[in-house]
Design a protein around this nucleic acid. Structure first.
Lengths: 98, 98
DNA sequence: TCAACATATCGACTTTTCCCGATATGTCTA
DNA sequence: TAGACATATCGGGAAAAGTCGATATGTTGA
């Protein structure tokens, strides 16, 4: 069950919207990174966003709690990627429930 | 042009989400009111929400600035109704742009 | 196993949002 | 045109979110 309020709060921040947008095309947005099987790692996102590591880590967990991204730990890196199902569902919710 | 951030901020409040939901079916949600040609008036919404008049007035203008509702002044009353086009557009935006 | 590195968490400070009461503005009617 | 009523605006105190630096945790490779 989606918590609409939590999702909208997660989307109510310029940087978080940018991150979600970057994650739409990881290869184009993060040319530094080599492999994208599990998304993009925190450090890359942090560098591009220009905020501190702690802030970006916090933002990613807000997006994750809202269900908008998923994370995969690979070695010492954590990769984040969009959860496209969540966006489809949200799009539906806006048409039918909100 | 939609300002996504402003829209998501407007949707990031429980009471404002409730108001939008009530306005989906004004007749069912506001049995006190007689005519719904232009939506529901502020006083009815305020009463149902249980917050102060000033707060509800403010919330309605937040929703209006985001483009989610429109208002019509009729005599001393201001009626608010949903802007369904905005919701359709938002639904599209979530699928394509966010 | 230890040093280096990536990420997460904590504590603090600043900015924004929530929500109120008081007051101003606009409209109607006697 | 004054009084009553509906709504909007203003100013402020409390709560939440934004953002940082410092530190903790987890992982890897020498």
């Amino acid at each position: 069950m989606m918590d609409h309020l939590e999702i909208f709060k997660a989307l109510s921040n310029k940087t978080r919207l940018e991150i979600l947008n970057w994650l739409k095309e990881p290869e184009a947005s993060f040319p530094e990174q080599d492999f994208f099987d599990h998304g993009v790692c925190v450090g890359q996102i942090q560098q591009k966003a220009g905020l501190t590591q702690s802030t970006i880590s916090e933002y990613l967990s807000i997006l994750q709690r809202a269900g908008l991204v998923t994370s995969t730990r690979v070695g010492q890196w954590t990769y984040y990627q969009r959860n496209e199902e969540a966006f489809k569902a949200l799009s539906q919710v806006i048409q039918s429930e909100i």
